[in-house]
Simulated assay, not measured.
Amino acid sequence: MLELKTPREIAAMGVTGIFIAELLDDLARRARPGVNLLDLEHRARELIAARGAQSCYWDYEPSFGRGPFRNVICLSVNDAVLHGLPHDYVLKDADVLTMDIAVSIDGWAADSARTVIVGTPRAEDRRLVAATEQALSAGVAAALPGNRLGDVSAAIGAVAADYGYAVNTEFGGHGIGRTMHEDPHVPNTGRPGRGLELRPGLTLALEPWFAAGTDRIVYDPDGWTIRSADGSRTAHSEHTIAITDGPPLVLTSRARGA
């Protein structure tokens, strides 16, 4: 079922979104060579508790995971791209780190992911991260009232194709609002003019993620962490947005917080 949100409810989601943007800013500043992933997890817990927010990840137990998930953030390094379990790993120079988090404040959720390069960047990693960021921007730009969900997916997939990256369709974006995952599913590639018509009040988490060399994935023994099947590096960018009568609102934008 689709639940269209009122302007007041979207504003409440925006409060959560600004907090997430600020939290990711804080963690990005701390993500340096020599920092342990567990330090970033603990910092995220501190910020969530101080704000009186609730983690959407804690005790999350979907069919694909070996749950319940007992962390508040997903931290995925290099060839890991989704659902990375924070663990005892010290970041190294040139590591690619994806931070993905969803929280709820006063009953309204938002979800965002950001990939950062730790220390000295490699050109090919910069290119990969830029591709996900540009794909996210293209998806947001296509999220106009009267357009179709396929227009959003096609816009994301077109950027991947331009960069030469294959697209996995097992995991993509999703509806969001009172809970972290709501209908509809938003694939990272698709056909324009197809699918659900976008209507004001629809709130979505768009999340293009690409691997440099493949669209196939494998799971770690932990049952959660998803990696590229060929070991190539990965990147992931995500925003929570709201469809309006005009341009979409990016609820997890750093610019809104500023």
Rank of each mutant, 00 (worst) to 15 (best):
residue 56 C to Q: 11
residue 56 C to R: 06
residue 57 Y to D: 01
residue 58 W to I: 12
residue 59 D to F: 15
residue 60 Y to N: 10
residue 61 E to A: 15
residue 63 S to N: 08
residue 67 G to S: 11
residue 69 F to W: 14
residue 69 F to K: 06
residue 70 R to G: 01
residue 70 R to L: 14
residue 71 N to Q: 14
residue 71 N to T: 11
residue 71 N to R: 13
residue 71 N to V: 08
residue 72 V to K: 03
residue 72 V to F: 14
residue 73 I to D: 03
residue 74 C to L: 07
residue 76 S to V: 09
residue 76 S to P: 04
residue 77 V to M: 08
residue 77 V to N: 03
residue 78 N to H: 10
residue 79 D to K: 09
residue 81 V to R: 00
residue 83 H to I: 06
residue 85 L to I: 14
residue 86 P to M: 00
residue 86 P to V: 02
residue 87 H to Q: 05
residue 87 H to M: 05
residue 88 D to W: 11
residue 89 Y to A: 09
residue 90 V to R: 06
residue 91 L to T: 14
residue 91 L to G: 11
residue 92 K to A: 15
residue 93 D to I: 14
residue 96 V to N: 04
residue 96 V to R: 09
residue 96 V to E: 03
residue 97 L to H: 00
residue 98 T to P: 03
residue 99 M to K: 05
residue 99 M to C: 01
residue 101 I to L: 14
residue 101 I to K: 04
residue 102 A to T: 12
residue 103 V to M: 06
residue 103 V to E: 02
residue 104 S to P: 08
residue 104 S to W: 11
residue 106 D to H: 10
residue 106 D to T: 04
residue 106 D to M: 06
residue 109 A to L: 10
residue 110 A to D: 00
residue 112 S to D: 05
residue 113 A to L: 11
residue 113 A to G: 12
residue 113 A to P: 12
residue 115 T to W: 08
residue 116 V to I: 15
residue 117 I to M: 08
residue 117 I to A: 05
